[in-house]
Write a protein that binds this DNA or RNA. Structure first.
Length: 577
RNA sequence: UGCCGGGUCGUCUAAGGGUAGGACGACAGAUUUUGGUUCUGUUUGUGAGGGUUCGAAUCCUUCCCCGGCAACCA
């Protein structure tokens, strides 16, 4: 697990700050309404205690971020607490690597948990709960195979059938369950089931399995156990043990709620309340751990933290700030209807922040930039021109950038036969070099293949930025770097991971929609001030987008990730025609 | 076909018997030494029918559509 860099934008506002910061009064989401009703009625003594319960079998993604912001945000808002609880009841898929990454991600998002718990902390207690239910006649040991149990379960439209083992005596059940625990039986030989109703219209009520035998090494309890509780027999009781007041989960657990309540009722323990909300779906990506794991294992991406991944680790490496993720979570809201959020909203959130905070720098992102030679500029002369660090922040000051006779500009910023509203450079045309002079293109130099290799231009000495007396008005301003002073860098340009807006709605497998151009690695020529930039530093490349230094970067070779492009109305217009 | 949910601008999300509002997007304009930012304006919505009511997105009813549920996963 790589160390997670500090996020300077990671400050969590305290309560009073948050209140004064609060813009217009926002309406409550349905969970906040429930919480406020509970507080008003004095339920749980007005206490609010939530929990974030990941299973440590994969990395967290932006959908988890929604849940984290909801759970921690709710506690924060109502003076409550939030536990981090690892739902580690299935040792074969779980690992401490995931535990560590999850903790790092939650912290990076800006939240600190009240308690760090594990469902495995409660194995003794859960075992006692199970014996309790056996004693009350609510549970029995079933020797049937998985296949037989599945067959007896019936279907959604047909009731199930009772297992022949359903009528075992309490004594026999107790004896068998203890021997399951003692390791007398192989995996799959027996399970402990709740005795509820094999004819229930809710499939989860048809004698759900409580414990199964798994002779597997657990990441925390080691080899102490060979029986492990199922989700349904662990989650609600864990909530109850921790006195969780509001147990928030996604919609697919809705049909589990009657089971959740049933165990709590039969055990007579603290009644936590489960409330479901719709999970996050984002356009042009997938959000299931299974699919993300597949992308990682099959090498479609470089790892869980590949900047194209919707994982928190990936988004972080891409250059997103945690504040922008929190803002996003806030804007998408909480409701029960299925949703598919436009990834454009996420991009809006990061642009909004980075626009205010990043230093503007000159970077010519082009494998083959065009060299501009200013024929009337003295050879060997170097000028220092002042560039505003950030026009959105007047305190940010200026920085000197070297200017000389030979410059690089992007190939896109010159067109031999420009269309009507093209504001950039063209033969005989004029353009402003950002922070420097207006230039006029007088000659286009081509190689034998007819490719443009050089532009011979003249600069207008009176047009210098800040002291322009030329009286010339140009429509366009372009960025540039001085050939003699630039440093080369690698830039990784990311695009959407998938080409389908909603891959789950497609007939074909999601992997058929992997965007072959989701990563493009190009060379760039950047201004010398970037020499000392450190991993995690963020910049705006003027007119291009927001970029951050990747951990792969070194003193020898700068590596930038493009977090997000700037809005580009010109490109949009081009696409239309 | 059984059970449980859910349907409000293109996308999210409010309004819970009394003006359908906000955000993102889109479009138009202003400003701009980033075709960025900022500002202004515009556009578009209650799945359908019936009922209750002075008045329905909201209550009742029939229908339609969408999602989830049949792992010894969570």
């Amino acid at each position: 697990m790589p160390e997670v860099p500090n996020d300077t934008n990671n400050r969590i506002s305290n309560e009073s700050e948050r209140r004064s910061d609060a813009p217009a009064e926002r309406s409550l989401n349905f969970i906040e309404q429930i919480v406020e009703e509970d507080i008003a009625s004095g339920k749980n003594g007005g206490r609010v205690h939530t929990r974030f319960p990941p299973e440590p079998n994969g990395y967290l993604h932006i959908g988890h971020a929604k849940s984290i912001c909801l759970n921690f945000g709710l506690a924060d808002k109502y003076g409550g607490k939030t536990n981090l609880r690892f739902d580690d009841t299935n040792p074969v898929t779980e690992d401490t690597e995931y535990v560590e990454s999850i903790k790092a991600d939650v912290r990076w998002l800006g939240f600190e948990w009240e308690n760090e718990f594990y469902a495995s902390d409660y194995f003794d207690q859960l075992y006692a709960f199970a014996e309790n239910l056996i004693q009350k006649g609510y549970a029995y040991v079933d020797d049937s195979t998985a296949e037989v149990i599945a067959a007896q379960k019936g279907t959604p439209t047909e009731p199930g059938k009772d297992s022949p083992y359903r009528t075992r005596s309490v004594e026999e059940n107790l004896d068998l369950f203890r021997r399951m625990k003692a390791g007398e039986f192989p995996d799959g030989a027996k399970v402990l089931r709740a005795k509820i109703d094999m004819a229930s219209p809710n499939m989860h009520f048809r004698d759900p399995i409580m414990y199964r035998i798994k002779h597997a090494h657990h990441h925390r309890t080691g080899d102490a156990w060979c029986i492990y509780p199922m989700y349904d027999f662990a989650h609600g009781q864990s909530d109850s043990i921790e006195q969780i007041t509001h147990s928030l989960c996604t919609l697919e657990f809705e049909v589990h709620r009657p089971v959740y309540d049933w165990y709590i009722e039969k055990l007579g323990i603290f009644p936590s309340r489960q409330i479901e909300f719709a999970r996050l779906n984002l356009t042009y990506t997938v959000m299931s751990k299974r699919k993300l794991l597949q992308l990682v294992n099959e090498g479609h991406v470089s790892g869980w933290d590949d900047p194209r991944m919707p994982t928190i680790a990936g988004i972080r490496r891409r250059g997103y700030t945690s504040a922008s993720i929190r803002e996003f979570a806030d804007r998408i809201g909480i409701a029960r209807r299925d949703n598919l959020i436009d990834v454009g909203l996420l991009e809006f959130c990061i642009r909004e922040e980075l626009n205010k905070t990043t230093t503007r720098v000159m970077a010519v992102v082009d494998e083959q930039p065009i060299k501009v030679v200013l024929t009337n500029y003295p050879e060997g002369q170097v000028d220092e021109v002042a560039i505003e660090n950030n026009p959105e922040d007047h305190e940010s000051g200026h920085r000197n950038v070297p200017f000389s006779r030979e410059l690089y500009i992007e190939r896109d910023d010159f067109l031999e036969n420009p269309p009507k509203k093209y504001f950039r450079l063209s033969p005989g045309g004029m353009v402003r070099l950002k922070g420097a002079y207006i230039i006029k293109c007088e000659e286009v130099v081509k190689n034998d293949e007819g490719e443009i290799v050089e532009l011979h231009c003249v600069y207008i000495p009176e047009s210098r930025s800040g002291s322009d007396t030329s009286g010339i008005n140009v429509k366009g301003t372009i960025h540039w770097v001085s050939v003699a002073h630039t440093i080369e860098a690698e830039v990784r340009l990311y695009d959407r991971l998938l080409t389908s807006e909603d891959p789950s709605s497609e007939d074909r497998d999601f992997k058929e929609f992997i965007n072959p151009k989701s990563l493009e690695v190009v060379r760039a020529y950047v201004e010398p001030s970037l020499k000392t930039a450190q991993a995690g530093d963020r910049f705006q490349f003027i007119r291009k987008g927001y970029f951050c230094i990747d951990p792969d970067s070194s003193n020898e070779k700068l590596v930038f990730n493009r977090t997000v492009t700037l809005k580009d109305t010109w490109a949009k217009e081009q696409r239309k025609s």
